[in-house]
Design a binder for these strands. Structure first.
Length: 493
RNA sequence: GCCCCCAUCGUCUAGUGGCCCAGGACGAGGCCCUCUCAAGGCCUAAACCGGGAUUCGAAUUCCCGUGGGGGCACCA
């Protein structure tokens, strides 16, 4: 691990919802920057005007902030390497494209999309690899300049060597050798004057002094191109790290729209914006995604600061990883148990409020220790603890009836239980459990028959936090009233 | 079709020639604890894709298959 401060960047394009994969790369970028005392940068790659969707940029910024991956430089925070939105940097790319043309590494191309498309069709028909045929590469500089001056629309293409090989070095995969004839004269600058990714990313990474480029392995195909562009400029290369992609849970192929929809049905998502709503925590999501593609030998529950301590780019893994949502549950639940009561209270409150419940802060603080280890997602607090904040509960009659008994027999139990509890000066755990246990003993009933009734009567549900601790929080008056209601229900049955 | 990448339990991974009859985590199963549900504790099953080669010795190196993934745009 280099001790020199690293400058890393996450460079998403605002073309849709922020994906889990983006979050993971951002996390690694963040970890490396923090570990080395460097900077983590957000750059928006919005050069495809047709695909840019309104709000997507904001979603990315919100997503990063929600995750706690605050960038040191970016469109909305500034920085001395700005602007951080590529559409605001078009002159920079045009100037650089010009440099490449002047150095003989690029050339203007006047071929129309129609001609290109026809050319491609012909090549396919002849079973050749689709590639630019080099028509405009043969143009003399003078003629090219004349046609440009004439106002003819043109693109700038990179002049890829026809012969030889390009050796590009990836930190995780070693040297990757590609025959140059496999490569293409890619377009660097489009007719609209905006750059393609290939030019924009390379220029920006250099201009912004990015030291480590982490990106998805879908860029491996054009990796040799990028390396050639850097070399054509005569610049130093960053450390390149191509991360593997995420596969769908079955491991067969990457996540598609269909899988994303299925995940949503199961209460999961691959989009960051959904995570909070589904009750996931930044800690859980981060810890989970960190471990897909990063090999940590043991004790893999980590906070972000622990991740910073342990992170090295050498421990990243190159193989594709299947998404495993069960593991998300595990990490989420584990982190929830690590939160302080106060912290958890603040995080839970919005979910209760969302449910239309009026939260009493004192009660909230008291009930949290009871439900904490039962929560997998934050919104589970509703099913486990909504009854704490309701005036009345509405149990099902069949749940109320003790197992193996009928309504009539249960009424007997209920009355007895009421009597016992009403006789207590308070409804504390210490006070209530012993006499109730004694009653179970002498009546010959089993614990679940008695406690089960009480649980359903007081909480309204069959599954709840520990009974006596819960009753203590619910309070004497409310408990007794709820038991009375239950008795009334049973009597009517 | 062509090119590139990847390959250890079902899944995520540790392992950089002997420490490995392969370790951890999730998940699964069992037991304990127990007022429900959890949590927790203990235990079990579960993997080096196949074939060659190098070596005294290979999960670890090299070849060839096979499988999987990605790419072949004036998209990123």
């Amino acid at each position: 691990m280099s001790i020199k401060p690293a400058r890393t960047r996450i460079a998403p394009s605002p073309t849709g919802h922020m994906h889990l994969g983006t979050a993971r790369v951002a996390l690694y970028d963040y970890l490396l920057a923090k570990k080395t005392g460097g900077q983590f940068i957000l750059r928006i790659e919005d050069t495809d005007l047709k695909r840019t969707v309104p709000g997507a940029e904001q979603e990315i910024m919100d997503g990063l902030r929600w995750l706690g991956l605050q960038y040191d430089e970016g469109p909305d925070v500034g920085g001395k390497y700005g602007p951080y939105r590529q559409t605001e940097r078009r002159e920079i790319y045009q100037a650089h494209a010009k440099i490449l043309v002047e150095k003989g590494h690029a050339y203007p191309c006047f071929c129309t999309p129609d001609r290109l498309e026809k050319m491609r069709q012909d090549q396919m028909k002849r079973k050749e690899n689709p590639h630019y045929d080099g028509t405009c590469r043969k143009l003399s500089p003078d003629e090219a300049a004349r046609r440009v001056a004439n106002g003819e629309p043109y693109t700038i293409r990179f002049k890829m060597p026809y012969e030889g090989v390009t050796v590009a070095h990836d930190h995780l995969r070693g040297d990757i050798t590609t025959e140059n004839k496999q490569l293409n004269d890619y377009v660097l600058l489009k007719t609209d004057g905006l750059p393609t990714y290939h030019l924009a990313a390379i220029v920006d990474d250099h201009e912004m002094e990015i030291t480590h480029v982490m990106r998805g392995s879908e860029w491996l195909g054009t990796f040799p191109l990028h390396v050639n562009i850097v070399r054509a400029f005569g610049w130093d290369e960053p450390v390149w790290i191509h991360l593997s992609v995420f596969l769908k849970p079955s491991g067969k192929g990457k996540m598609s729209k269909r899988e994303a929809a299925q995940a949503m049905k199961d209460g999961y998502s691959i989009f960051i914006k959904d995570m909070q709503e589904l009750g996931f925590t930044p800690e859980g999501v981060l810890n989970w995604s960190a471990l897909m593609g990063w090999g940590v030998s043991e004790d893999d529950v980590m906070t972000v600061s622990q991740m910073v301590d342990r992170f090295t780019i050498d421990s990243l893994t190159p193989s594709p990883a299947a998404i495993n949502f069960q593991k998300l549950d595990h990490f989420n639940a584990t982190h929830i148990r690590l939160f302080t009561t106060e912290d958890l209270a603040a995080r839970l409150k919005p979910y209760f409020t969302r449910e239309g419940l009026n939260v009493n802060d004192e009660v909230l603080l008291k009930m949290i220790p009871l439900i904490r280890e039962r929560l997998v997602t934050l919104d589970d607090c509703i099913s486990f603890g909504a009854f704490f904040f309701r005036e009345n509960v509405a149990p099902n009659l069949e749940d109320l009836i003790a197992k193996g008994l009928d309504a009539k027999q249960t009424v007997e139990i209920a009355r007895r239980v009421y009597q016992i509890l009403a006789a207590q000066p308070d409804i504390s755990h210490e006070r209530c459990e012993p006499p109730l246990r004694a009653y179970v003993e002498e009546s010959g009933l089993n614990v679940n028959q008695v406690f089960g009734f009480l649980r359903v009567a007081t909480t309204g549900q069959k599954v709840s936090p520990p009974l006596f601790e819960s009753m203590e929080i619910i309070g004497r008056e409310t408990c007794l009233r709820r038991i009375q209601n239950a008795i009334a229900m049973l009597e009517k049955a």
